[in-house]
Write a protein that binds this DNA or RNA. Structure first.
Lengths: 155, 155
DNA sequence: ATAATATTGTTGTAAATGCAACACATTTAT
DNA sequence: ATAAATGTGTTGCATTTACAACAATATTAT
């Protein structure tokens, strides 16, 4: 993988991805506050992921929500305390694991937040066309897959 | 900006950018450790940016290195303590600001790190062609610019 | 059989991050 | 002229993050 000789960090694709990710995070958190949602962005992502994947163990969930194992456990503690999920012991490859599922209240909160968020984002000016997004999606996916082979995630 | 009705967070472009950024950060930090560089990724980015932009005030630097003002001040404290930069008072629009420049030692460390990093990255398998990178670069740039108008950065 | 290795989740802690408050100076508004 | 608002950098603190160490169990190697 060649880098142009005169490339400074600020001109690399790594920097631009970091920069864009930072904007995404700020926007996300600001939207959650502005809309007065009763959960944070991380909690929303966690609930939404549990809804899709059904009963998965904590480590698999950690990989999906991009947190490490301790961080995932802590988010789940909060969600459990607030009654949005319930946890139970199960096995996976003969190993004892903890899985989880949404409670009724968790479903309700998630649906509500999803609805409010969809409305908000539908009213945002469309700054990228659907086909632009697809191009971005494809190429960032390809980039990430390449990256994946170079970096140890140890989650 | 329309979202497909059935899109979960994990399928959005926001998630994929976060995910890719995380890989970038891990790879970066792991490379800096593996190569036994005497500075961190953040310090390198800071030195490299000071080298390009010459004498800028801390707040402008903060925007470039994607840190907030306190964080930028702290990184600069470290770099100053280690003798890689020197700081001095100046004015910008009649306002008192602190600017900085690389010391000889700072230049040396930066050049050394740049050389080692270039060698490392040149030996990585090329997982994206130059034209692929350009496509990614263009579309992520466009996306970020759209985002920029929706999010307050207050740095 | 025993030891070494691997998987999963938790605890603890050092470091990084985000943010509000402050100090100080300058510009703008009234 | 005075007050309010803005720009710059620092301090302090609460939260988040990264990471190592551990407990418990299962698999693999010797």
């Amino acid at each position: 993988m060649k880098l142009k000789q005169d490339k400074h960090y600020i001109n690399t694709i790594y920097y631009k991805i970091e920069q864009t990710a930072k904007y995404c995070r700020y926007l996300g958190n600001q939207v959650f506050q502005k809309l007065n949602l009763p959960i944070t962005l991380d909690e929303f992502a966690t609930l939404d992921t549990i809804k899709i994947y059904g009963e998965i163990c904590q480590r698999d969930l950690a990989k999906l929500i991009l947190k490490d194992r301790p961080g995932t456990g802590r988010i789940l503690n909060i969600l459990e305390d607030r009654g949005f999920i319930k946890r139970f012991a199960d096995t996976k490859n003969n190993r004892l694991v903890r899985k989880m599922s949404l409670t009724n209240q968790g479903e309700k909160i998630l649906d509500k937040a999803t609805k409010v968020l969809k409305e908000y984002f539908n009213n945002l000016p469309e700054f990228l066309s659907q086909s632009d997004i697809e191009v971005l999606d494809q190429s960032i996916q390809k980039f990430r897959k390449g990256l994946e082979q170079e970096v140890a995630m140890n989650i």
